[in-house]
Amino acid sequence: MKRQRATVIVEIDGKILLVENRGGLLLLPGGGINADESHAQAAARELAEETGLLSDSLQFLFSHESQTNCHHVFRASASGAALAGDDAMALHFFAHGDLPLSARMSPATRQIIARFACTREQGQGPEKRPPGMSPAVMADSSA
């Protein structure tokens, strides 16, 4: 059974925020979903823990299955100062075509970012929300 994870895309000045883990791998902010929280609540919590940013709003984009995880991907508007925290060793900002950073990403992170870029270019909206998530939670993580 695949682990359920909340994954967050935050763009700052046109670049996507990445966290560096202890092994030097670059990932999108995110992590496991606790039994007592929704996917959106987990996304907001993980974003705050790993980057110090507070999500002003979250929009569910899509689910992505990797070999070991089912990522519930959200796009966040966030405020605050981005600082590495919790299990993030450093923060990086990825611009399309940045091959050195891309080479350090997990395969799932590369795939999620490519899928995000593709849906954005095609002007597609978010996909159907995950089960149990109300529209209000999708629009505002504080709900």
Rank of each mutant, 00 (worst) to 15 (best):
136 A>F: 08
48 A>K: 15
48 A>D: 12
83 L>Y: 12
93 F>E: 07
5 R>S: 11
106 S>F: 07
93 F>G: 11
75 R>G: 01
143 A>N: 11
103 A>Y: 11
122 Q>C: 08
143 A>H: 13
107 P>K: 04
132 G>N: 03
2 K>Q: 10
11 E>H: 09
109 T>S: 12
33 I>H: 05
11 E>I: 10
85 G>P: 09
76 A>V: 02
37 E>C: 10
58 L>A: 04
19 V>T: 12
30 G>F: 01
81 A>W: 07
59 Q>H: 14
120 R>L: 12
82 A>N: 04
11 E>K: 14
136 A>H: 09
33 I>F: 05
101 L>S: 03
40 A>Y: 00
128 K>N: 03
103 A>L: 06
31 G>E: 00
32 G>C: 04
40 A>Q: 09
120 R>I: 07
46 E>S: 14
17 L>P: 00
98 D>L: 08
101 L>H: 01
45 R>Q: 03
82 A>H: 02
107 P>M: 05
127 E>F: 15
50 E>P: 07
24 G>R: 06
49 E>W: 11
142 S>I: 06
4 Q>A: 11
124 Q>I: 15
138 M>C: 11
21 N>A: 05
12 I>C: 11
86 D>H: 15
124 Q>S: 13
95 A>W: 02
26 L>T: 09
31 G>W: 01
15 K>T: 15
142 S>N: 14
83 L>C: 13
128 K>F: 03
88 A>S: 04
75 R>A: 05
40 A>T: 05
102 S>N: 10
25 L>F: 15
115 R>I: 05
8 V>N: 02
26 L>A: 12
11 E>S: 09
50 E>T: 07
95 A>P: 08
111 Q>D: 08
8 V>W: 03
50 E>F: 04
60 F>D: 05
143 A>Q: 14
99 L>N: 11
111 Q>S: 15
112 I>H: 08
45 R>L: 03
124 Q>K: 14
97 G>P: 07
29 P>L: 09
61 L>F: 00
23 G>T: 10
116 F>S: 02
66 S>Y: 06
38 S>K: 12
1 M>Y: 12
138 M>N: 09
53 L>D: 00
61 L>Q: 07
38 S>H: 10
34 N>E: 13
12 I>S: 09
27 L>H: 12
124 Q>W: 14
61 L>R: 02
42 A>N: 08
72 H>I: 06
12 I>V: 11
76 A>T: 00
25 L>P: 07
117 A>P: 00
104 R>Q: 09
15 K>S: 12
82 A>Y: 03
94 F>G: 00
38 S>F: 06
63 S>F: 11
109 T>V: 10
3 R>N: 08
4 Q>I: 10
7 T>M: 00
77 S>R: 12
88 A>G: 03
108 A>P: 07
69 N>T: 15
99 L>H: 14
72 H>N: 05
110 R>F: 11
62 F>K: 05
43 A>H: 02
17 L>D: 02
100 P>V: 08
13 D>C: 14
53 L>G: 01
141 S>G: 14
97 G>M: 02
92 H>V: 01
70 C>F: 09
105 M>K: 12
73 V>H: 02
135 P>L: 02
142 S>V: 02
15 K>Y: 04
75 R>D: 00
140 D>F: 03
5 R>I: 13
18 L>A: 03
66 S>H: 06
56 D>H: 13
100 P>Q: 05
44 A>C: 05
